[in-house]
Amino acid sequence: MTATEVFLQQVIYGLSNGMIIALVALGYTMVYGIVELINFAHGDVFTLGGFLALTIVGALGAAAVLNPDTLGDSSHWLLLATLVIGAGLFCGGLNVLIDRVVYKPLRSAPKLTQLVAAIGVSFILVNIALFWGGAPMKILGNGNAAAASKNFPEILEGSNLLGEESNVVLRLEDLAIFAVTIPLMIGLTLFVKHTRLGRGMRATAQNPIAAKLMGIDTDRVISATFLIGGFLAGAASVMWSVYNNSISFQMGFRAGMDAFTAAVLGGIGSLPGAMIGGVLIGLIRSLSDGYIETRWTNVVVFGVLILILVFRPSGLLGLKQREKV
């Protein structure tokens, strides 16, 4: 491989992973923008999305679904769409439930109280994922120990689109990630900009009390925010599982940290910021994998996070804001 090919390859990896990170980061940034809570459990909602997707695949029997005779050549895409929507709705619903049960009663509590509660929720979800990886996965043939990583079946064909002799690998999965994430991001942007509920979201983010006075049902807005954030995390987890072909009950911690870093890098509260931040973190990760060493990548990412927070806490696109007294 020439130096250019190595670079191109890392950029492809980085963009694909970065788009997934961006979807998760949107969930962080939206929730933070509206209720000023670092939703620590977001990464673990993402994990459960992956487990739901694997359960759906197992229940349908991937081999049968992917048989071209039953549904034709589009069966892969149909299955992928089912998974994205299924896991998305599941994670969205779960996120709303968590907000109602745990966060809502603490809305006026000090920020650190809320953050600690969110960490608690995160641990509970990790444990649920651990249990989910036990008996239910065994029935579906993804047996062995509950804590072990589960194989996620190859849904999209893995051959190189640039031809077998090319050193740079671009697979259908890479394109699928763009095909899923970009419409979702465009849809979200249009939704927030042009719908009534979207306007309500922007108003609540700016000033919840004023929004309430203007007749906006802020509780509904907050629920909608958690629903959308969760949906994006669910969609992201499906793409992540399809791309990496393996899921584990702890995958949400790393993914969540990457996504949170991305949200902060872009400027927390800013939607385009989260998207750009996600792609940048993806690229930083893959370039660090390629040019430094894989084992140092997490150090690089966390180092970037700390440096941004210290030198530019408002991120790339965030507004400089003073802490409210």
Partner: peptide
């Protein structure tokens, strides 16, 4: 295997 669940519930319930 209930360790995480236990820690998590402890934090959530105490905060609440």
């Amino acid at each position: 295997n209930y360790k995480f669940l236990f820690f998590g519930l402890a934090l959530v319930l105490m905060m609440r």
